[in-house]
Amino acid sequence: MMGYDRPGDPLVLGVPRAAFRPSPVFLALAALFVTSGVMTWQRFGNVRLDVFLFVVTGWLVSLCLHEYAHAVVAYRAGDRDIAHRGYLTLNPLKYTNPLLSIVLPVVVVLLGGIGLPGGAVWVDRHAIPGRLRHTLVSLAGPATNVLFTLLLVAGLRIGLGVNGPIEFWAGVGLLAFLQLTASVLNLLPVPGLDGGNMIQPWLNPQWRRMYDLFAPYGFIALFALLWNPRIGGWFFGAIFGLADLLGLPRELYVAGLQLIRFWQG
């Protein structure tokens, strides 16, 4: 359905088309990602700084697309107001908490090499009928990470055959590894995260109340557990195994992590 609130201002289901246009912030991130990729390929200036920009901006772009996937599925499922909240413009500054959504995941990438779940969009669950639709809204984000993982690994395996600077492929390898860790983390059945939110609609009322009680602390609990040496070791052991299974060269993403820490000399 299309209407107009004034001449020349088209509406889609009562929402201005501007609500669906990519924001200048996202377009700038995407442009910087492409530019830094070219700079890395050309070994322009300080190549370690080039790789840093390439990986960080690539990770931020993927965070935006992860959250966009949640938002667009929610919109299709019945939450029309999500467009008015700015989530369909891919603008990371519209997230509920930019500090936790953007800054913390980037810091964790730099320090620990983990694709920590990042940005958050607020979905009006009352506007979406049916448990399956709620599950699909939660699944949309992790599915995007899985898709990115497969595309990056495939591109890496094809691209290595045509040679090119090792720094560039190390950056691609690290991005693939980050997407893999994000895929696994987002699919864990942790209250408050995507994996937990996928099963929440199917819980009985008693278990759902308990879930809702712990959901605000799920992210913090997961973050703390990953820094535990034993639990972190189990997690990374599983991630390394999956990476090997996918054919992601370990030496590449390890080199990529070393390269983005350009301040270490």
Rank of each mutant, 00 (worst) to 15 (best):
Gly164Phe: 04
Arg6Asn: 10
Val108Ala: 01
Arg76Tyr: 05
Leu150Thr: 04
Leu90Ile: 08
Thr96Asp: 00
Gly159Cys: 09
Phe223Thr: 09
Leu27Asn: 06
Ile239Ala: 12
Ala154Gly: 09
Arg80Asn: 02
Phe214Cys: 03
Ala19Glu: 14
Pro205Asn: 11
Val51His: 02
Phe26Asp: 01
Arg76Trp: 08
Leu152Thr: 03
Leu156Gln: 06
Gly45Val: 10
Tyr211Pro: 01
Leu139Tyr: 09
Leu178Ser: 06
Gly113Trp: 01
Tyr75Gln: 00
Leu257Phe: 10
His84Trp: 09
Val153Lys: 11
His134Leu: 13
Gln258Cys: 12
Asn204Pro: 13
Phe148Gln: 15
Leu152Ala: 11
Trp169Glu: 07
Gln264Ala: 11
Leu242Tyr: 08
Asp79Ser: 05
Val72Ile: 13
Thr89His: 04
Gly195Tyr: 02
Tyr87Arg: 00
Lys94Ala: 04
Leu100Cys: 06
Pro165Ala: 15
Arg48Ile: 01
Ala170Asn: 14
Gly58Glu: 00
Pro165Glu: 15
Val190Gly: 03
Ala182Ile: 06
Phe26Met: 02
Arg17Glu: 15
Leu139Trp: 06
Ser183Val: 06
Leu187Gln: 11
Val51Ile: 07
Ile260Val: 11
Val25Thr: 13
Trp234Cys: 08
Gly159Val: 08
Ala19Gly: 11
Leu110Pro: 05
Val254Ile: 14
Val12Trp: 12
Leu226Ile: 07
Ser62Pro: 01
Pro189Ser: 04
Tyr95Thr: 02
Leu174Glu: 10
Val34Glu: 00
Cys64Tyr: 02
Leu151Tyr: 07
Arg85Met: 00
Trp59Thr: 14
Asn46Lys: 06
Leu178Met: 09
Arg21Asp: 10
Ala224Gly: 11
Gly161Tyr: 09
Leu136Ile: 06
Thr135Gln: 05
Leu188Val: 13
Phe54Trp: 03
Trp227Glu: 15
Pro16Leu: 07
Val15Ile: 15
Thr144Lys: 14
Gly256Asp: 07
Val123His: 00
Thr89Gly: 05
Pro129Ser: 15
Pro189Arg: 08
Leu242Val: 15
Gly118Ala: 02
Arg208Val: 04
Arg230Gln: 14
Lys94Glu: 03
Pro24Ala: 09
Ala170Leu: 14
Leu248Ala: 05
Ala255Gln: 14
His126Gln: 12
Asn46His: 10
Thr40Phe: 05
Gly3Asp: 13
Trp59Asn: 10
Ile82Asn: 00
Arg85His: 04
His70Asn: 01
Glu67Arg: 01
Leu160Tyr: 09
Ile102Asn: 01
Leu174Ser: 10
Leu139Pro: 04
Val162Ala: 13
Arg230Trp: 15
Met39Ile: 08
Leu110Trp: 02
Phe148Ser: 12
Leu180Tyr: 04
Val56Met: 13
Val254Phe: 14
Gly113Ala: 01
Arg230Asn: 07
Arg209Gln: 14
Gly232Gln: 07
Leu175Phe: 04
Leu225Trp: 05
Tyr4Cys: 05
Val15Glu: 06
Gly164Lys: 08
Leu13Asp: 15
Arg131Ala: 07
Ser36Asp: 01
Asp79Ala: 03
Val51Ser: 03
Asp244Ser: 14
Ile82Gly: 00
His70Lys: 01
Gly247Pro: 12
Ser23Glu: 02
Pro189Ala: 05
Val184Arg: 09
Val15Thr: 12
Met2Ala: 13
Arg133Lys: 13
Ala243Lys: 02
Leu11Pro: 06
Leu226Trp: 10
Phe26Leu: 03
Trp169Lys: 08
Tyr68Asn: 04
Ser183Phe: 10
Gly173Gln: 14
Pro16Thr: 07
Ala83Arg: 00
Gly159Ile: 09
Pro16Phe: 07
